[in-house]
């Protein structure tokens, strides 16, 4: 869920396209890495169809978590809290909430995928799906947290409004990480 806002003030179609299209091309090139990994894992996906069922959520959720955290951090920066300090309780509350959300969503993903697999007859055992979903999901959540903190802080320091370009870049990069980690973890767990 990336929301580039670079041309938000404009209502002229040509201006919107000129501002956004180059960013879209850059983002597409970044996410192409995820596609190459997916194509490379085609044999694994063909053998375990249930992994393909989990792919869109694995791609999207890391980016969604990164977007939520980045947006919240950005708002705090705009409101004047400009330091990232290990003693900052609100910061830890945000990080804790992201981890709790990740644990809930990736548990639900494993259960949902198990139900879909049972209905279509190509499932894996629930414990295996839980291990794959939570191991890759929690790793992606940590990546999303570190990446969001670093880029939001850096863009603020460099004087770029994080709303403009940082959030779409964070979400797309974290999407790619989600894909890489998910297929890596699946390969290890399933011994492929």
């Amino acid at each position: 869920m990336a929301v580039p806002k670079g041309a938000l003030g404009s209502w002229d179609a040509r201006h919107i396209v000129r501002t956004m299209f180059p960013l879209l091309v850059v983002l597409s090139t970044v996410v192409l890495a995820a596609g190459i990994t997916l194509e490379d894992a085609e044999a694994l996906l063909a053998e375990y169809g249930i992994l393909a069922v989990m792919v869109p959520t694995m791609i999207g959720t890391g980016g969604n978590l990164g977007a939520i955290l980045s947006a919240r951090l950005t708002t705090r920066f705009h409101l004047g809290t400009t330091e990232i300090s290990p003693t900052d309780r609100v910061l830890w509350a945000n990080v804790g909430a992201i981890l709790a959300l990740a644990a809930t969503v990736f548990t639900a993903l494993a259960v949902g995928a198990y139900a879909v697999g049972a209905a279509f007859g190509f499932g894996l055992p629930l414990p295996t799906l839980l291990v794959i979903s939570l191991a890759s999901g929690m790793s992606v959540a940590v990546i999303a947290i570190v990446f969001s903190l670093a880029t939001t802080y850096a863009s603020y320091r460099l004087g770029i409004d994080p709303d403009d370009t940082t959030i779409p870049i964070v979400t797309n990069v974290v999407d790619v990480c989600g894909m890489l980690v998910f297929l890596g973890v699946s390969g290890i767990v399933l011994g492929a």
Partner: peptide
């Protein structure tokens, strides 16, 4: 399959901007 993640990610980038 190379196109799938890019195609999905683009939906968010384009229509997220429109919605915003």
């Amino acid at each position: 399959l190379v196109m799938v993640p890019v195609f999905l990610a683009t939906r968010g980038n384009v229509y997220g901007a429109l919605g915003g």
